[in-house]
């Protein structure tokens, strides 16, 4: 059914918290996502012309780089973009076949690929561009929050997390229950002022993005060594010039 489920009170809202302060844009989350999801629930994922011009395929996670702010306060922000597993997702309600659904038990938004007709309307209804058409199979695909990992009892418990979270070398990605205010991810959101994306559209996304920390005003980069002109003693200045020759 593509009507949204009645979520039982206290049901978890599983999702990701992504730290834009520590993300270095290395693409490890994107490639590990592709590797895991090329098989399992969503597999295979198409890769057209992988070794020539025009290479393209389905990715559930894409890392953008943006410039934010002006002048000295400006900075580069790397921004991984994936499904936010919204509480009121239109991608589910617009689906004419019932293939697109939100799970009552943990809030994960999934596609039943056997019932999808590939009309693409759900992708139009998603403001975040989180859904991508598998043009080979003719069905819509999307981030599953690694539903086939996080409940998988055949892998060690510590590894029952989304592939992107495990792969991140700077620990910029965190997975947990955002409905529970005591959970580690909720605490992180509270401490760092985690942001919902495009909240005005009313989709109530679950995932949160932690904005970059404020720069400390007086901090000098450590590479800023004194130049020869900064050395007042002419003898030392002359020695410095001779020794650097």
């Amino acid at each position: 059914m593509t009507c949204l489920p009645d979520r039982p009170p206290g049901a978890p809202a599983l999702g990701l918290v992504i730290d834009l302060d520590t993300c270095v844009g290395c693409q490890a989350c994107a490639t590990s996502c592709k590797q895991w999801n090329a098989s399992g629930h969503s597999g295979p994922l198409p890769d057209l012309h992988p070794y020539s011009a025009g290479a393209e395929g389905v990715w559930f996670n894409r890392v953008h780089s943006f410039e934010a702010g002006e002048g000295a306060a400006g900075r580069t922000v790397h921004f991984p973009r994936s499904c936010l597993h919204c509480e009121t997702p239109d991608c589910v309600t617009v689906c004419p076949t019932g293939a697109s659904y939100k799970r009552a038990e943990d809030g994960i938004v999934l596609v039943n690929h056997d019932a999808c007709i590939g009309c693409g309307l759900c992708a139009w209804a998603c403001p975040y561009g989180a859904r991508e058409m598998d043009e080979v199979a003719g069905v819509m695909k999307k981030c599953t929050l690694c539903v086939d990992r996080i409940y998988n009892e055949t892998i060690p418990e510590a590894l029952r997390q989304p592939a992107c979270v495990l792969a991140c070398p700077t620990k910029a990605r965190h997975f947990g229950d955002l409905a529970d205010p005591q959970s580690a991810v909720s605490q992180l959101v509270a401490d760092r002022g985690g942001q919902a994306l495009m909240p005005d559209l009313g989709y109530r996304p679950v995932n949160r993005y932690l904005p970059p920390r404020q720069r400390q005003a007086e901090s000098q980069p450590i590479e800023d060594q004194p130049t020869p002109l900064d050395i007042k003693n002419p003898l030392l200045r002359w020695m410095g010039r001779v020794l650097t020759r």
Binding site: F66, A73, G74, V77, Y128, Q195, A196, Y209, P211
Partner: peptide, 12 residues
């Protein structure tokens, strides 16, 4: 607003 970076100013 699409990136949650409004506090930093203009985003491009």
């Amino acid at each position: 607003s699409a990136t949650g970076l409004e506090a930093l100013g203009r985003v491009r």
